[in-house]
């Protein structure tokens, strides 16, 4: 197991240097002439109005919750998928029950309009 992750470690270390080296080269090459007008927040050429904090749609949050639940469901389904060919038939039925139960949750959300984007 460790052997298989060794390569990831080496690749990760090398990949980590790529953005660092790129930023350093760019820092050496590029002009640096900051001035206050340049560093203002961009807002189509006018002065920024108010705070950046805009009304955050709660819909995003609902999607994130549903996403987390289905992500965890997938984690449980992957071992099932690997072992599928060797499992007894009743296991298959239980796995389907597992999926259908979650699908019910999704249907509830659908009925409540939680999936709908306005």
């Amino acid at each position: 197991m460790l052997q298989e992750f060794e390569f990831l470690g080496v690749l990760g270390a090398i990949t980590l240097t790529i953005p660092v080296v790129t930023l350093i080269i760019a820092w050496l090459l590029r002009p640096k002439k900051p001035n206050p007008a340049k560093q203002e927040t961009y807002e189509s050429g006018i002065k920024t109005i108010g705070d950046t904090w805009v009304q955050f749609k709660a819909q995003y949050y609902i999607y994130a919750i549903i996403f987390v639940v289905f992500d965890i469901e997938a984690v449980f389904l992957f071992p099932f998928a690997v072992a599928l060919r060797q499992l007894p038939l009743y296991s298959l039925i239980w796995a389907i029950v597992f999926i259908v139960l979650l699908f019910d949750g999704l249907l509830y959300g659908w009925r409540k309009g939680a999936l709908h984007w306005n």
Binding site: T41, Y42, T48, T52, V54, Q59, Y60, F67
Partner: peptide, 22 residues
């Protein structure tokens, strides 16, 4: 970035990525 468009863009993109990842 502390910019309205950046933040809005990030929200939209992330929400889309979550949706299509399932």
């Amino acid at each position: 970035s502390n910019n309205k468009y950046s933040l809005l863009g990030a929200f939209r993109v992330v929400a889309m990525m979550l949706t299509y990842e399932i």
